[in-house]
Write a protein that binds this DNA or RNA. Structure first.
Lengths: 137, 137
DNA sequence: CATTAACTCTACTAATTATATAGAATTAAT
DNA sequence: ATTAATTCTATATAATTAGTAGAGTTAATG
């Protein structure tokens, strides 16, 4: 399941992607438009900024705006930024790999191979969903 | 990601599936064989029993054994028993459906449609992995 | 029928993570 | 100087996860 943070991030990106070109949206505007707690959204927008999905203008008349095309921001990207690995175990992860502490005695984790399959399929599906496709439906 | 509980459940089932026909495995035996904290495993085995994946024999010489074919126990089944929904949001779930509290104002949740696609693909993949296929690799 | 060794059940604890909230600092427009 | 926005760090609270404790129940065995 997605954390609220990831869900809110997606909704914030959807909001931004639906504004007209050049519009700078204030946090409070996004919060009210997408029904997200404002102070929580502040943190989320900062993380989206550090992740290079949005940028901001400071000071009065400041706010946030997309800096990537809505068709290139995938569900996989946002999941990884906020919820981390897409794989079901760290040992099956591409971007967040860690060996299992409880599998060292076996030659290899008995679950890993099957979970690699799942990861590949899920990742492919998640890379097929973008902010753009979410808006279209 | 899978919780430890789900991971341990899978490892316990793998252990049981690899015993010879008719063998009854004690909790301590499974715990040591699969490197799972024993008291935690007790709870997990009880849940697997309530889920009708295993059965038990009580008293001295008692223990646990599989009551479903290893090829019919899927990753999706075990995920649902311990970690719940496979979908990324409750509103996109088949078995754990709940409406989103923060989407009531919109005609429908803007994320739901895309997440239904993900759920379908992930579910199909997870139904393709069984205890049997995990043993084979 | 007492002993032993197993599962069963409920409650509890500890640690971690998720979900925020508070408030001061910084930035920039007017 | 004022106003209104982002930025940053710390804190608070709640929920979940992970694991432990211990008493109760069941059944084999001598």
């Amino acid at each position: 399941m997605l954390s609220h943070k990831t869900k809110y991030a997606l909704k914030a990106l959807l909001y931004l992607a639906q504004q007209e070109e050049g519009h700078i949206a204030r946090t409070i505007e996004i919060a009210e438009g997408a029904n997200i707690p404002k102070k929580f959204l502040e943190q989320i927008l900062l993380e989206l900024k550090r992740g290079h999905f949005v940028s901001s203008k400071q000071g009065k008349l400041g706010g946030y705006y997309l800096i990537k095309s809505k068709n290139t921001i995938t569900l996989a990207d946002i999941h990884r930024l906020f919820d981390g690995a897409i794989a079901l175990l760290p040992c099956a992860s591409l971007n967040f790999y860690e060996p299992c502490s409880d599998c060292t005695t076996e030659s290899e984790c008995s679950l890993r191979h099957g979970l690699l399959t799942i990861r590949d399929e899920t990742l492919k599906a998640m890379q097929g969903i973008t902010i753009g496709t979410l808006i279209k439906n």
